[in-house]
Design a protein around this nucleic acid. Sequence first.
DNA 1: ATGCTTGCAAAACGTTTGCACAGGG
DNA 2: CCCTGTGCAAACGTTTTGCAAGCAT
Lengths: 159, 159
Amino acid sequence: MTSPTNPTKVDEAQAAFRRYLRNHGVKYTRTRAVILDSVLEFRDHFEAEQVIHLLRESDRKVSKATIYRTLPLLVECGILKEVRFDEKRAYYEFAFGEAPHDHMVCRRCGRIVEFASDEVVALRAKIGQRHHFHVTSHRFQLSGLCWECSTKCPVVTMG
Amino acid sequence: MTSPTNPTKVDEAQAAFRRYLRNHGVKYTRTRAVILDSVLEFRDHFEAEQVIHLLRESDRKVSKATIYRTLPLLVECGILKEVRFDEKRAYYEFAFGEAPHDHMVCRRCGRIVEFASDEVVALRAKIGQRHHFHVTSHRFQLSGLCWECSTKCPVVTMG
DNA sequence: ATGCTTGCAAAACGTTTGCACAGGG
DNA sequence: CCCTGTGCAAACGTTTTGCAAGCAT
């Protein structure tokens, strides 16, 4: 769901990145191109550390600092989206041309299910109006048990 | 909304804390009582650092470590609730006997509005069923502009 | 050339932990 | 008494930053 298996999408993402950087007076360097390529290799969600490892293991050597400086750029230009599954670290997912969605996490097996957020957007607008608020973004994260885990043992033990 | 202005509630909270600790084979020490007293002095949301300062400034000296070890106890026994307004630190609010609610934050002035989460709970159940998930908890955080800020200048600049 | 970018290492940050001592039940 | 709680300082893990050197335009 996150990975841009479609090669055209990869090209579009690269073009979007170049465009974004140019429009912001920032350079499209080889290092940044390398980082973009690498994050596009992930299928699902990933964290900064995984990018660091992926780049270290392949030939390409990019410093940790640069990766931490580049990921926010990719988020700002809409290629990536930052997701928070826990409070310990940032996770990212491919967002370019993807439909907005939220996440539901099984607290026992860790499975992540994505769901469209249309209804959530409608609800947030309703709540916003009620409190004289112009809501522009939300974060809706569900936690519970997936069907497999709940049939195995309905008692929640967490982990 | 967060503060237990009602003295009876304070007493109930203390009783609940004692009960909880006893039932878990944990001691009700003077230090823990002091920490409970101090968190009950806050009106709205607060962070661990504020508890540390409050205790330092008044006579009572409690170490940072103990505060960090006690706050989770107060959350587990239902007196406090942990809230996450950002990814940097944990915030807490009084939860004992309060109706569950979620938060809406103005991204310009930081104002926090609480709203009841009945509809949110209904929606989360609906979404859960649709994806064969037994949802047990959620986190719904809204961000935008409060009425005052949006009338002052509708352009979002963030801070 | 100019000034943004990079890498390195060190700092920052909230939070956690190891340990020896203190204290509750 | 025993076992848990406490304080201190040091460790923690992710992320940020200061600085000198490197590169794009």
